[in-house]
Design a binder for these strands. Structure first.
Length: 224
DNA sequence: AACCCGAACGGTGTGTGGCG
DNA sequence: CGCCACACACCGTTCGGGTT
């Protein structure tokens, strides 16, 4: 990593953390603490408002911000591919992704605008079914704490079962989408494949989660 | 290719100061 | 008082760029 890149990284770390020690920075950047001290000193000497306190760590004063920075081609490639994957979901997700790409394109310098058109990475079949509208609705329900009613059909079932769910999150498992939620029928966490949800409705009913019903609790139980 | 030079870095040791 | 973390100095090594 170039030194300039490392100095930029240090500022980024300091911006996103309340308190940062030289040891932590040294581990993250794979350099010695001694080098961290030198870098911090150099940043401070160029006017970056960093406060260091022995026995405490470093903090970046709140009034400091970086000027807008331009993406490099590798970053742009990642962003464009990501946006194209999201656009493949359809619905409002596609509209949003297209709008974001358009904004990005208009903000780029001419050279990068040309480069971005050369990115030939597409995701047309990233998702054969368009879940954009369903994900939009689930996302809205999660934010507004609204109950969702779904008709869910398991492979062994002949008819779909109607359930009321407190939606907690939507996950993509490399080949399929699922919604994780608190199932009021089973009174437990359940995840539902979106391709097995035959009908879904946002109910005019809100929910309040107990601690044992929250997504953090679910994640803590499944992630070792 | 060999050499020189400066920048950057790591290691080590010592001092200082906050905190529990 | 001990621990932790920053501050500083000194020295040796590595690396890249420039020169001969």
């Amino acid at each position: 990593m170039r030194r300039a890149d490392r100095l930029f990284q240090i500022i980024q770390f300091l911006r996103t953390r309340r308190l940062t020690t030289a040891k932590w920075l040294a581990e993250k950047l794979e350099i010695s603490e001694r080098t961290v001290y030198r870098d911090i000193q150099d940043l401070m000497s160029t006017g970056v408002p960093i406060d260091g306190e022995a026995g405490v760590g470093y903090v970046l004063r709140k009034d400091y911000d970086l000027p807008p920075l331009m993406f490099d081609l590798d970053e742009l490639t990642t962003l464009v591919l990501g946006a194209r994957m999201v656009a493949a979901l359809g619905g409002k997700m596609k509209t949003n992704a297209d709008r974001a790409l358009s904004k990005l394109n208009s903000a780029l310098p001419k050279k990068l605008q040309e480069d971005i058109n050369k990115i030939k990475l597409y995701a047309p079949s990233f998702n054969r079914l368009h879940y954009g509208a369903m994900i939009d609705l689930i996302n809205q329900a999660i934010i507004q704490h609204q109950v969702i009613s779904i008709d869910y059909q398991k492979p062994q079932d002949v008819v779909a079962e109607r359930r009321k769910i407190y939606p907690l999150g939507v996950f993509f498992w490399s080949d399929r989408w699922t919604m994780v939620g608190w199932c009021t029928t089973r009174n437990d966490f359940r995840h539902f494949r979106l391709d097995r949800i035959l009908e879904y409705t946002l109910l005019d009913e809100t929910f309040k989660l107990e601690k044992e019903q929250r997504l953090e609790t679910y994640l803590a139980s499944v992630i070792v």
